[in-house]
Amino acid sequence: MKPLAVLLGLILLGGCNAEERSHVVKLEKGGYTGTADGVLSDATRLTLRQRMAWLTDGPAEVAAGDGPAPTATATVSGRITGQNY
């Protein structure tokens, strides 16, 4: 009986992906312990914010620094006179 159980266990284990076999399943919830990710620089953050201008319909001016940037200053180009936007 015993060898059979071992065999069965091995077969079951074989069903897992190789890299999964050594995993420790935690029974209590903890925090992330994996490799730490890089942190964005402020310059990158500013670039990202400026890049958001393209998500509107046209180029917009985006203020530097923190806080919501007023897209109200967006320059909608090419209006014709009398247009109501």
Binding site: L48, R49, R51, M52, W54, L55, T56, P68
Partner: peptide
């Protein structure tokens, strides 16, 4: 320094991604 491509390429600029405050403003 680039935003998610799905939003940047959205056909109608329906999909917005980035700084949450700016997203809400737009």
């Amino acid at each position: 320094g680039k935003l998610p491509l799905c939003a940047e390429m959205c056909a109608t600029k329906a999909l917005l991604a980035g700084d949450g405050d700016m997203v809400s403003t737009i």
